[in-house]
């Protein structure tokens, strides 16, 4: 682990009861959703992490608790540091508080979380779908959502599929 990152990790583990893990030199902290806003504020104001670089989620379906992990990536330009935070969420209540008031660019990232994973973001100013059409049903990046594909036509099933396919006029 980077020496400069050590005080940050120590402070967050103490204050927010976070669990530290490391893989190939990258540090990540697992903490609960109650603490994420406070942790992000501390990272920005005390430790100089100016940028929210990344915010995404992972779905561990069919596992239910926790079903989702939200991954936050913070970058400090002045200290040249990077840290990942992970927040587990239960499948029956996927709600996470917004980071919009700490990092304004969380806005679109969180809309994407809602659109792609159906994770509701508490206190978000504009929680609409961002990538899919606004009347779309379902959240595509969830693991229980089918990829959706079209059957490939071969000579033995050509006729059968041809009937089902939408056809161009004339």
């Amino acid at each position: 682990m980077n020496e400069k990152l050590q005080p940050v990790v120590d402070a967050l583990t103490q204050r927010f009861d976070a669990q530290v893990s490391e893989f190939r030199g990258q540090v990540r902290l697992l903490l609960s959703r109650e603490h994420i806003v406070a942790a992000a504020t501390a990272l920005r104001d005390e430790f100089g992490f100016e940028m929210l670089t990344e915010q995404t989620a992972v779905d561990y379906w069919p596992q239910e608790s926790p079903r989702f992990h939200i991954v936050y990536g913070f970058t400090s330009w002045q200290h040249n540091l990077r840290i990942l935070l992970r927040v587990p969420l239960p499948g029956d209540d996927p709600v996470v508080p917004t980071l919009e008031n700490v990092y304004p660019n969380a806005n679109w990232h969180e809309r994407e979380l809602w659109d792609m994973f159906g994770i509701r973001v508490d206190g978000h100013s504009d929680l609409r779908r961002i990538l899919m059409p606004h009347d779309w049903v379902g959240h595509p990046l969830r693991k229980d959502y089918p990829l959706g594909y079209e059957e490939v036509q071969f000579s033995f099933n050509h006729e059968e599929i041809q009937v089902r396919k939408p056809q161009p006029k004339d």
Binding site: M132, P146, G148, E150, P166, P168
Partner: peptide
Amino acid sequence: TGGVFNNYAVVQGVDEVVPV
């Protein structure tokens, strides 16, 4: 034909929408 993207988001050939 949809190309490499055989998934939920991409129309599998624009001939489903307009005559080509």
